[in-house]
Write a protein that binds this DNA or RNA. Sequence first.
DNA 1: GTCTATAACGAGATAGAC
DNA 2: GTCTATCTCGTTATAGAC
Lengths: 206, 206
Amino acid sequence: MTKKAAAAPVQNKRTAVLDAALSLFSRFGLHGTSVDQVAARAGVSKSNLLYYFANKEELYVCVLRDLLEVWLAPLREFSAEQDPQQAIADYIRRKLAVSRDSPEASRLFCLEMIQGAPLIKDELDRELRGIVEHKSAVIRGWMDAGLLARVDPEHLIFMIWATTQHYADFAVQVQALTGRTLANPEFFEQTVASVQAVVLRGVRPR
Amino acid sequence: MTKKAAAAPVQNKRTAVLDAALSLFSRFGLHGTSVDQVAARAGVSKSNLLYYFANKEELYVCVLRDLLEVWLAPLREFSAEQDPQQAIADYIRRKLAVSRDSPEASRLFCLEMIQGAPLIKDELDRELRGIVEHKSAVIRGWMDAGLLARVDPEHLIFMIWATTQHYADFAVQVQALTGRTLANPEFFEQTVASVQAVVLRGVRPR
DNA sequence: GTCTATAACGAGATAGAC
DNA sequence: GTCTATCTCGTTATAGAC
């Protein structure tokens, strides 16, 4: 109890710093963001921040690690027990919800990927590869059973990833062209429906 | 003639610098790249580079301007005179060809978008908005004529953009998961076929 | 047009008092 | 744990000779 009471403020500070860091790194990148800026936004001093995180890069990696979990969660839920059409529809909705609720995480993930993901490449290779292979096998099973039209599962997965992330990563462009973002509930539902419609028709068996 | 002979080397240097800059900016971003690095890669001295470009930001904006043209070209070609299925199939192929041939341009474009495109937002608003509205109208016309299933044209365009760019922007991830990139001719054709298949079936009228 | 030298600044990181 | 002060280095940009 006493331990928890003492540790809580520390955790709060760490969290505040991580939140501030995500927000700034996702907009300006690692090199475009100064430790000072992160500290200011988190409401701590620079040297205090550097007491919690040994250096800037360690902070960055911590942010990325948290990120990876958010990014992977919807894929982990993708289930083999469901009806295939329903599983895909649900996955699209969940992924779009992530783009709506954690656009900064999505953008930083994208930034990191573009730069070759030097800091999380190993983890990505290990973690993601296994999950994707598993989910691809599930999709392939559905196709074998005649429940889905035959398309390369990897390309199908890429298409869903790319399309759903686009609304977070290119939010500025989407906003410029449609006047809206996923934060608008009506636009969110319209987007879910459109993406689901094209993808589901695209894999519906003849 | 004499003028051209004198101007050519200068143009070559400018071009070399712009090429080097694109390559580095697209990997490390504006702040992650030093003028020194760009100069070294272009084979000129730093101060010489700063003779051609007043400062780093001007160089960056020049790179972005060239980029925008590459990025917009396939969309401009998107024609209303064609058969809709063929027009969409061609557009997907051309866009994937850009991802294969100019992955750095695609990545820098994405980087810039994520950061809110502060430097080219105005141009983007003007240029892109007009084209997209025009192409959307064409697609809507096809739908009205019963040649395509009814989907929101903007979302359809986003889906094609996102999916085709993904192979450039997330090349590292694609490589990690499939072992290949668009540089592989076989993989390129397989990708074109998969994306076309899903999208075209997705918009095929009932 | 091209180079060397250097000014001027910003940012990451550390030292040490409290 | 938190602060102030400071060290140190990399980088942009300029000055000025050739």
